[in-house]
Amino acid sequence: MSALLASTRAELLRLRRWPALWVLLGVWITLNLTFVYGFNYIAYRTGDASAVTEGVPPQALLADMLPTAVPQSVIQGMPMFGGAILMILGALSAGSGYGWGTWKTVLTQGPGRVAAFGGTLAALALVVIGVVLATAAIDLGVSSVLAVVESQPLEMPPLGELAEAVGAGLLVLGMWTAAGVLIGVLTKSPALAVGLGLVWALVVENLLRGVSDLLGGMATVSDHLPGTAAGSLVGALGARGEAEGDGTPGVLTVLDGGTATWLLAAYLVAFAVVGLMLVRRRDLA
């Protein structure tokens, strides 16, 4: 236990000092603010029913930017954009250990492979928790400011809904981070891991969903892919999906919330366990 704790603390120190972490988190927060509030607020103020807002009436736009909408707005970008960014973080975190030879450094200091890899996962889990809570806090703050500026009642979302959204965000981003770590371990290369991960999340899953109607049995497979599960969980919590025209890419209504939750949890555990097995069994070189 002390070895796992030591590995986690060391990994947290490494992540804190790693510019890539702050760049990726900055990109996510910026994307979230830009697409949830920036464009929509400009469209609301100018009354411009542009392609960005898909012709949504201004009052509906404003409602989506108020604190009561935070449980949906905080997670709507996570299945695709947030997931891709956190997958890059996981892939870089595990893959760069091979590229720079730092896994070797870590594994010769005392902690065994289980503790060292566990420490990496635990540190990344803490980062994911931080990201989701920070996103929720920032969204609540910005939406509250907008409510005051637009003379709207400052009504907070129900705590239960907010907790559900935070839980869903943790599961979605946690799953994608674990997927990134697994790809990093599999490829032993940060660049290849990032490339393959992004191709899978942004291209392959969409293509498979696209051809699922053409091939018998393919629909069952594509309905249970990691991205589908992530999108379905967020869709089940009220975020508007791709099918609604003005919805967010990646948000789906394929699976019900319960199934999506269990599937995401299963993927998360499976990615972590397979990654651990590979780290234990394979030579580090």
Binding site: A6, S7, R9, A10, L13, R14, R17, W18, P19, G97, W100, G101, T102, W103, K104, T105, V106, Q109, G110, P111, A116
Partner: peptide, 19 residues
């Protein structure tokens, strides 16, 4: 030996000391 290049010498040795 593999280094995290963004670390200073002190930080790297401190990182190993934590491990």
């Amino acid at each position: 030996p593999g280094f995290h290049r963004g670390f200073t010498a002190f930080e790297f040795v401190d990182y190993v000391a934590i491990l």
